[in-house]
Design a protein around this nucleic acid. Structure first.
Ligand SMILES: [Mn+2]
Ligand SMILES: [Mn+2]
Ligand SMILES: [Mn+2]
Ligand SMILES: [Mn+2]
Lengths: 221, 221
DNA sequence: TCTTGTATTTTGAGTAATCAAAATAGTATG
DNA sequence: CATACTATTTTGATTACTCAAAATACAAGA
């Protein structure tokens, strides 16, 4: 029913809503979809006419319940496909995002259900991103601590990487910062803009604050 | 580079060429792609301009070497995906054709290579159709015997089913006629238009000639 | 040869998605 | 408050693919 283009717009709106809350400015869609502003205005009007989102003139868009349900379905496909590519086909976690970007529009619900079963119903993808369940429920991940904001000198684990770019993921892997890895913040220097961490005993690592903000951490259960 | 539409035209031309040889009439593409004749003329002109096929006015098309190479790549994706869906995700062989019809355009060469490895380089798909290798070489399957044409009273094996429709495949499965299954033709009645076969000892089966012609058989090694 | 019938092509039109560039609205700054 | 800046919208085109319906070419049959 919905074209790949429409699905991409819906997913972009959902991700922005999850990351920032409230209305999604047109500019966010311009950026996410890499098109010119006029294109977004045109598409948004068409999608609003279809009841997928509400367009507030000069402000931005909000997903309707129908639009959000569709967006969650696309996000579920994206993240299950990523999980499949890494776990089953042994692809590198830094290359699967782009592959999933295309496959999320081609995998049917039937295939997805078989894949979910095959993978034993995973709840997070290789980047630590939560996978919505078949009914569209998704774990709330708002206000989680990152290496930029967490407490120092406590044993933690990497929970999620907030940057899907191959470059950053390759770098994170190099540093031993994959989801599940242990970390401890040794010292945070706000003036210098760096965070000093320990990954393994003796393995130290200094990260810039923007990079540190992309590493979500949780208690080292 | 090539759109899904172009890939579908190329694959249809290749399949027709493999089944009938020589030039592919416009009408064959009309049928295969379920579009109106004028649409085919338009698309064919565009594709000829791109060097994917040669258009002989009022006659039909021939694949160029470039077009054929692309078509073989699409066919390889289609059949590897089908194999994957049946072997790994345990889907029914009668439903995978339609799924593969969409996935063949979304699976990248990188993913395909991993899948090929994972499946241990299969050479035929679940319907017995040969899978082109990574260089586009494909087993020649012209002039193989079918239940309509093969010798009687010799132990044989089903090699391939030439009809991908879910209905026919479900029927074939019911009759125990999956690739690899043993069969023997007991008697052929050209006047009555039927073939009487034995699948298992004691299990007899009577097939109409059109159906029999869709079951490719080979020696029961 | 004339007449049909069928396959193919042409013509005219429409939809989805896009861009470039000009117009506009709203916000922030002096 | 006037000005400037920025985000958004509008306008006018373009590309890819599609259909409906009319025109045309070709191969047979009478
Ligand atoms: Mn996508
Ligand atoms: Mn992910
Ligand atoms: Mn296809
Ligand atoms: Mn097949």
């Amino acid at each position: 029913m919905a074209s790949s283009t429409v699905e991409n717009y819906l997913k972009a709106a959902l991700l922005h809503e999850q990351a920032h809350g409230g209305i999604v400015p047109m500019g966010a869609l311009v950026e996410a979809l890499a098109v010119v502003p006029g294109t977004v205005t045109t598409m948004v009007k068409a999608m609003a006419a279809q009841g997928l989102l509400a367009h507030e003139a000069r402000q931005g868009v909000r997903l309707t319940p129908v639009g959000r349900a569709l967006a969650l379905g696309v996000l579920r496909k994206h993240r299950l496909v990523e999980t499949f590519l890494v776990r089953t086909l042994k692809m590198d976690w830094s290359e699967v995002h782009d592959e999933a970007e295309a496959l999320e529009h081609a995998v049917s619900d039937r295939v997805l259900a078989r894949m979910d079963e095959f993978l034993d119903h995973p709840t997070t993808d290789p980047h630590g991103d939560p996978i919505p369940d078949a009914e569209g429920r998704i774990a709330d991940t708002a206000r989680q601590a990152t290496l930029e904001t967490c407490a120092a000198n406590k044993p933690l684990r990497v929970a999620r990487i907030l940057d899907q770019s191959p470059d950053f993921l390759a770098y994170a892997q190099d540093c031993g910062l994959k989801p599940g890895a242990r970390v401890k913040v040794l010292q945070r220097d706000a003036a210098g803009g760096v965070v000093r961490c320990e990954t393994k005993p003796g393995q130290e690592l200094t990260l810039g604050l923007p990079a540190a903000a992309k590493i979500v951490v949780g208690a080292a259960a």
